[in-house]
């Protein structure tokens, strides 16, 4: 039986937490619960949001008081097939391919970070482009949190990259995780690339959803500029692979 807790969060919302030693397993379960809730289209459910190890939901107590809500969620979890472990890699996955420029101009910290990690820029670029990243959840302003990267957690590295002027679309390693900057900001972190990326209207999130994957394709500066020029067309031209 999967361990879960329903935490009261006022009279309109609850947080369903899935404590587990592996945060990726917790996140897998949180995304599973969101899918299960949304596919049932409950009239009492206002909205849901996946967080790192939990799913938050806002509900209407006129249709579903707290006691009944807890019973409903417990039933869904107990009767449903909650992921017990991480997928074995054979499942179908939706991968959005993003063009990223890793040149010195667009990845100003790549060489220094590579040196600190005991490698070189090209090897680090190859490494970044060699895998698919799971979009775990979105933070404020649409900051996409990606699955653990080729980097190990190195919080001490962030001191080497303090007060960077980070621009929207830049790929940043902040010592803990890799993310795509959703807006221009002054923050700590190594800028290791710049992606051609669009944001959905209103919500601020990049085009994908938690549970989908991103992969990076290295492009030259010229190609990057051309892609940026025809950015509007990219929405239809973006390469999406469904792979098994």
């Amino acid at each position: 039986m999967v361990d879960y807790k329903i935490l009261i969060c006022g009279d309109r919302s609850v947080i369903v937490a899935f404590p587990d030693e592996d945060i990726m397993v917790s996140n897998e379960r949180a995304r599973w619960l969101e899918r299960e809730l949304n596919k049932r289209q409950f009239d009492w459910l206002e909205c849901t949001k996946v967080l790192s190890d939990s799913t938050a939901l806002i509900y209407n107590p006129a249709y579903m008081p707290y006691g009944k809500l807890c019973a409903k969620i417990s039933k869904i979890i107990k009767k449903g097939s909650v992921p017990l472990t991480l997928p074995d890699g054979n499942e179908k996955k939706l991968v959005h391919s993003l063009s990223v420029c890793f040149s010195e101009k667009y990845a100003p910290d790549l060489a220094q970070l590579a040196s600190l990690l005991g490698t070189d820029g090209q090897a680090l670029t190859d490494s970044l482009c060699s895998r698919d990243y799971l979009v775990c959840y979105f933070l404020n302003k649409g900051r996409a949190h990606l699955s653990p990267t080729v980097f190990k957690e190195r919080p001490e590295l962030s001191q080497h990259f303090a007060n960077r002027r980070i621009k929207q679309g830049q790929l940043v390693f902040d010592g803990g995780e890799l993310y795509i900057a959703p807006f221009d900001a002054l923050a700590n972190g190594a800028i290791v690339g710049t992606a051609v990326v669009e944001y959905t209207n209103g919500e601020g999130n990049i085009f994908c959803r938690p549970g989908e994957y991103l992969s990076f394709t290295s492009v030259t500066e010229n190609k990057f500029k051309k892609l940026c020029e025809k950015k509007e067309r990219l929405v239809t031209e973006r390469k999406v692979n469904i792979v098994r």
Binding site: S13, I58, K141, E203
Partner: peptide
């Protein structure tokens, strides 16, 4: 109506 949305600060 009674906080029925997430991401208030990013909705514009």
């Amino acid at each position: 109506s009674y906080n029925n949305t997430f991401d208030r600060e990013m909705s514009g």
